[in-house]
Design a protein around this nucleic acid. Structure first.
Lengths: 227, 227
DNA sequence: TCAAAAGTGTTAAGTTTACACCCATGA
DNA sequence: TCATGGGTGTAAACTTAACACTTTTGA
């Protein structure tokens, strides 16, 4: 590896990643937050984070940090942005790259989550968070909302098969607004890649609700999505 | 400043900023690119960039770097994202945060631009660029297009007063598509913050075209914008 | 007088919204 | 048999898209 003088005269920084981890449970959108049982800011609420290492890309660091907490790999993640205020971390200067992740709460490793002292917290009932983590969450929510209206990322939060009521409740949680049931179902019916299965979910009603699933192969044929 | 062991065991990185600088001239959208007369990658095309310093935020570094090239401060800038592949810069590991900037070409310091060996290049006719700079530009264009359709950022690229034909040509350049003149003007007419002035521009037609200006105070009253 | 850009309305198509009742079933 | 959530269609309001001619004036 060549080193030019050019680089040497410049300072280096700790670079961290912080994860805004979305989950969906019982009609509510949750975030996985740490009640920190370690330094710094012990006892306070924070996002799951970690430092970028020499041998990994920033994206890979985010995946690693997410996997350390949840045990999951191949999770949908998207970069939110970089937070680079000089004193955002009062301990040391740290530049942090925020990512949001969407996952199915039931697939996460409950033992790991417990070991980190992490909790799923309703997104409408968030505690105060350290540093600029609340700001990161705000940006992540906006980005996620926009993406969810234009791309089929909602299925990352749901089980493989789901009812239309579940799907609607998820969108209502994302948008923070109610949606008309008939209009919603009309739009879904137009999306041929949201397929009826022959299974019925009886867990929330006596009549039972048809289970649907997302067919990504069919989606890839034209990639039109709009809710 | 307190140092915890926590930080010390982690590596540090060079952090750079790269600027995607948009300008608008004669109906065409341009980017300000460097034909590098310095190391590394001398002789190749690149974005204007620089390293984050100890005493400045990442956002401030982007502003400084932009100002070094253009002489301009108070320029509209937005973060595009962070590029953190391990070997994106073959010289040394550098994590780079990309920003896009919108400015009026005529306000930039031509002498400085020349000294840096920088050129305004039509966005549809870009050269090959070093590292991941083409990817940065791609993301910046997408982001800018979306923003321009939802917020009045287009005026950053225009002189204080402008004709409706200029404004339409700008949007056509941003969207890479033609727009119906009557429909466009109808939409503009609904935006009370795009105000007629009593001036006429005679530079592009014998008849002359009315000059308009953007009134930010009026805009701030309801902040609705959609083109 | 004519070339060249500025300016101006209407209609059809498509999209979005609002809205209320019947269905199936287990308790 | 009834309470509960599942499932279904239509009409009005609004938005978007398509489209062509007249005006002004300097050369």
């Amino acid at each position: 590896m060549t080193s030019y003088n050019y680089y040497l005269q410049n300072p280096k920084f700790y670079v961290a990643v912080d994860c805004i981890i979305f989950g969906f449970n019982e009609g509510e959108l949750d975030l996985l937050l740490l009640k920190r049982n370690f330094q710094p800011a012990q006892g306070e609420w924070s996002l799951m984070g970690g430092f970028v290492q020499e041998n990994e890309s920033v994206d890979d660091a985010a995946k690693r940090v997410l996997s350390e907490l949840t045990g999951l790999t191949n999770v949908y993640m998207e970069q939110v942005g970089t937070f680079g205020q000089v004193s955002r971390d009062p301990g040391e200067r740290v530049i942090s790259v925020a990512y949001y992740a969407l996952l199915n709460i039931n697939e996460s490793d409950k033992e790991l989550v417990e070991r980190y002292n992490a909790f799923w917290v309703n997104i409408n009932d968030l505690p105060e968070l350290i540093f600029d983590h609340s700001q990161m969450i705000g940006q992540a929510r906006n980005l996620m909302r926009i993406k969810a209206s234009n791309a089929p990322i909602c299925f990352e939060l749901l089980p493989k098969s789901f009812t239309l009521t579940q799907l609607q409740k998820l969108y209502e949680a994302i948008y923070g607004d109610t949606i008309d049931k008939r209009n919603f179902r009309k739009r879904i019916a137009e999306m041929k890649y949201i397929e009826k299965t022959d299974k019925i979910d009886k867990s929330t009603s006596k009549r039972g609700a048809v289970l649907y699933r997302f067919n990504n192969k069919v989606y890839c044929k034209n990639k039109k999505f709009k809710i």
